[in-house]
Amino acid sequence: MEPLKLIVTGPVGAGKSTLIRTLSETEVVDTDALASEAIGKATTTVALDHGTLRLDGHLLHIFGTPGQDRFDFMWEILAEGALGVLLLVRADRPETLPAARNILDFVVSRTQVPHVVGVTHLDRPQVWRPEEVALFLGTPPERAVGFDPRDREEAVKPLVRLLELMGA
C-alpha cells in the first residue's frame, strides 16, 4: 500500500501536535522545546511531528509543522511531496487568522494540493464558527470542519474530508 503524505499546519497553539498524538498508531516523533514567549503553553514544536495511521484503507503519514513563521523553512521542507494539507485554526483566537492565511498561502502555493481547514477550541466562549473562519480564509465553507483534536472519533473528521477532496 502506497502511503499518503499529509501535512498538518497552522498557527502556534492550534492543536497540531495534539492531533498527531491522538491519531497516530505508531510512536510519535515530536520535537518540543521550552517556549520562551507567552504562547499559553510550556513547550512548542521546533522541527516536526510525525505519526502514522490507517484510515479508509489508506496508510497515512502525517507530518506536523511548527506554527511560528520563523520556522517557515520547515513548512517548505515538510510540504514537499505532500498530497493534502490540513490547516488548523483556533476558533477562539481570531487574531491568529492572518497568520493562518499566511501559512495557507505559503503551503498551498507550493504544493498545489487540496486543503481542509480544521477549526479547534470550539468549546470556548466567543468563538468564530467554522464557516466564518472559511470566509475569512477565502476557502469554500464545506472545507471547514469543526472538531476536537483530543478525541479520536473527532480527530479523523477533517482527515476523512481531506481524503474525499483528494479523491483517495
Partner: peptide, 15 residues
C-alpha cells in the same frame, strides 16, 4: 534565521 534553524536542528538532533 540561524536562531530558528539552530533550534530546529537541535530539536531534531535530540530526537
Amino acid at each position: 534565521r540561524l536562531a530558528a534553524m539552530a533550534a530546529t536542528a537541535h530539536g531534531l538532533g535530540k530526537r
